[in-house]
Amino acid sequence: MENILTINNLTKKFGALTAVKNLSFTIKKGNVYGILGPNGSGKSTTLGIVLNVVNKTSGDFTWFDGNTSTHEALKKVGAIIERPNFYPYMTASQNLKLVCQIKGVSGAKIDEKLELVGLLDRKDSKFRTFSLGMKQRLAIASALLNDPEILILDEPTNGLDPQGIHQIREIIKKIAARGTTILLASHLLDEVEKVCSHVVIIRQGVKLYAGRVDEMNASHGFFELKSNQNSILKKWLSENQKFKNYKEEEDKIIAFLAHELDAESLNQQLFKEGVVLTHLVKRKESLEEQFLQLTGNQK
């Protein structure tokens, strides 16, 4: 599958602060990628670097075949990395005509793009009459005017109400279904889970996971445990390689598996150690639980 964007050991420092640290991942054609992480994790900085609006400190990135200059490559990229900025007294159609002139592309597809984002019936309405969600949809239409090979969106649903969020997500799915590669930055796990096929999770500029969303969810699960011999139980869990880690939650111990283990085997092993369990339930980890583990429980 063709590479759209390749990032190698990208680092960005702002004085003593390292916003992005040795970040590497590849965006392949035809997928929807999410860069997921808590606020301040380096998502927007990474997008700014590949869009040539932020200078990198070290590392490298290449667009498409690696032989295309960033300036030329960005002609095949559509991006929204700031709040939509259109002329309030001009109509949606007039604003998009102006964007076409700036980008040096034909205005022949303005109506097509407005229809795609559900704004064709408001093409002659002034921008100042638009809701926040409509403004965001118009921005997406403007980013699609050059028929980009990749669409880059930074927190596309920020500040929107539930209906606006749903509309943006449906538009993203529709654009992806037409074969456009999409890269979106978000701090919302729900957003990534619903619209992305792949995810790159970063915290404090460091990559924690990169791969398919459904493969991230392919964990061994966890046990909910209760016992009157908690000190022995915790010691045994910390020394057993079958477990990644554990945490205490109210009166229960939640033990996360590193390898497959069934409830009956666990019960037998603990009984031999003198630990009698009063509660034993095996559960599958949700994507949210894994994300919180990876990011150190930072929302």
Results as ranks from 00 to 15, higher is better:
residue 8 N to C: 04
residue 11 T to W: 10
residue 14 F to L: 08
residue 14 F to Y: 11
residue 15 G to W: 01
residue 15 G to T: 04
residue 17 L to D: 13
residue 17 L to W: 09
residue 18 T to H: 01
residue 18 T to K: 01
residue 21 K to G: 00
residue 22 N to C: 02
residue 23 L to G: 01
residue 23 L to M: 06
residue 24 S to A: 04
residue 27 I to M: 08
residue 28 K to G: 04
residue 29 K to E: 11
residue 29 K to C: 08
residue 36 L to K: 09
residue 38 P to W: 02
residue 39 N to R: 11
residue 42 G to K: 10
residue 42 G to R: 07
residue 43 K to P: 00
residue 43 K to A: 10
residue 46 T to L: 14
residue 48 G to L: 15
residue 51 L to S: 02
residue 52 N to H: 15
residue 52 N to S: 08
residue 53 V to M: 11
residue 53 V to F: 13
residue 57 T to N: 10
residue 58 S to C: 15
residue 60 D to T: 12
residue 60 D to Y: 01
residue 61 F to V: 06
residue 63 W to G: 15
residue 64 F to C: 04
residue 65 D to Q: 01
residue 68 T to D: 13
residue 69 S to R: 10
residue 69 S to E: 15
residue 70 T to C: 05
residue 77 V to K: 03
residue 84 P to Y: 08
residue 84 P to S: 14
residue 85 N to P: 13
residue 87 Y to P: 02
residue 87 Y to K: 06
residue 88 P to Q: 04
residue 90 M to P: 04
residue 92 A to Q: 07
residue 93 S to K: 08
residue 94 Q to V: 15
residue 95 N to W: 14
residue 96 L to G: 03
residue 97 K to G: 02
residue 101 Q to M: 05
residue 102 I to S: 10
residue 102 I to R: 09
residue 104 G to E: 10
residue 105 V to D: 03
residue 106 S to P: 08
residue 110 I to K: 14
residue 112 E to N: 07
residue 114 L to Y: 13
residue 116 L to R: 06
residue 117 V to S: 03
residue 117 V to Q: 13
residue 118 G to K: 01
residue 119 L to D: 05
residue 124 D to C: 00
residue 125 S to M: 12
residue 131 S to N: 06
residue 131 S to V: 01
residue 135 K to I: 07
residue 139 A to T: 11
residue 141 A to I: 00
residue 143 A to P: 00
residue 144 L to V: 00
residue 145 L to Y: 03
residue 146 N to C: 12
residue 146 N to R: 09
residue 148 P to E: 03
residue 149 E to S: 09
residue 149 E to F: 02
residue 149 E to D: 10
residue 150 I to W: 05
